Amino acid sequence: MNSTTMNTVTAPAEWRDFLALCKPRVLTLVVFTGLCGMLAAPTSIHPVLGFTAMLCTTLGAAAAGALNQWYEADIDAKMKRTESRPLPAGRMDRQSALHFGVGLGTFSVLLMGLAVNLLAAAILTASILFYVMIYTVWLKRRTPQNIVIGGAAGAFPPLIGWAAATGHVDLLPVLLFTIVFLWTPPHFWALSLFVRTDYANAGVPMMPVVAGAQATRMQVLLYTLPMAATAIAPWPLGLTGSIYGVSAAVLSGVFLLLAARVGFSRETDQAKMKPERQLFAYSIIYLFVLFGALVADRMVLA
């Protein structure tokens, strides 16, 4: 890690810096999909245990985000969209970030295992280790497939929520995991297309940097096809009702339309990549509404 790219710490970190270390925007989606996985389960969970499970999921995801920023401080310092984070901006020392991340992660797993169940704790452990060791340390700087394989890290929360409520894993949460897994490449590649200069400057081999914009655009479209099919699949498989099924079909149709616009775009100016920006923004809405429809469907069926 090249520490010369970071500013010298001039003052003790504030609570806002520790919060920023947790990647709160990412946390919102993680907690929401985990909560939906729990609420979609066929068995209810005591509210106190449910709150504890979501707290542990939140802290585990925060720990992964903190350790990611600890390891990638040199990369963050070279990119405009991340240079203001606590470590590259010099508002926190790396040792504090490391201790914070390890402490949060350890506490979240222990609490999940002691208060909820061991399966949920094991999946939470796997999600933290996968994000930190597999994605951040191993894949991020080595291959343009980093997002493809690393996408599994963000797909664990529905499994955690379901396991917390039931103590086991079924086909539906596996499909939810797969949806998020397949959603991740088009989501992040859409972003990387209009910020690829940042990744190039930092030496991160994201798909647009290594394979070019046109190849990346086609990959966005190709990954959207199995994602849409997987999103709709729970309905014909009899795992959900029509509220979810119709919602998934409409939402995925719009996603596919936006992905097609990206796939056939020939824009080279990053500032003018409107289809890519629209797809990135919609992809976030897509996951929130899709999982929300799942919970609404479950409540009606119940």
Rank of each mutant, 00 (worst) to 15 (best):
S3M: 15
T5P: 03
M6N: 15
P12F: 09
L19N: 02
A20M: 06
G37P: 01
A41P: 06
H46S: 09
H46G: 10
F51Q: 00
L55K: 01
A64K: 01
N68D: 02
N68A: 01
A73Q: 14
I75A: 02
M79L: 04
R81T: 05
S84G: 00
R91C: 04
L98N: 07
L98A: 13
L98R: 11
H99S: 04
L111Q: 07
L111T: 07
L111C: 04
M112I: 07
A121L: 06
T125H: 00
S127L: 00
Y131H: 10
Y131L: 07
V132K: 01
V132Q: 01
V137I: 12
W138Y: 05
L139N: 00
G151A: 10
A153W: 08
F156C: 10
P157S: 01
I160W: 03
V169D: 03
L172F: 02
T178Q: 06
V180E: 14
A190E: 12
A190S: 15
Y199L: 13
A202F: 07
V204F: 15
G212H: 07
A215F: 13
R217G: 04
L221N: 12
A229W: 03
L237G: 12
I243A: 12
Y244P: 08
A249G: 13
G253S: 12
S265F: 11
R266P: 06
D269A: 14
A271C: 04
Q278L: 11
L287R: 04
F288E: 01
M299V: 13
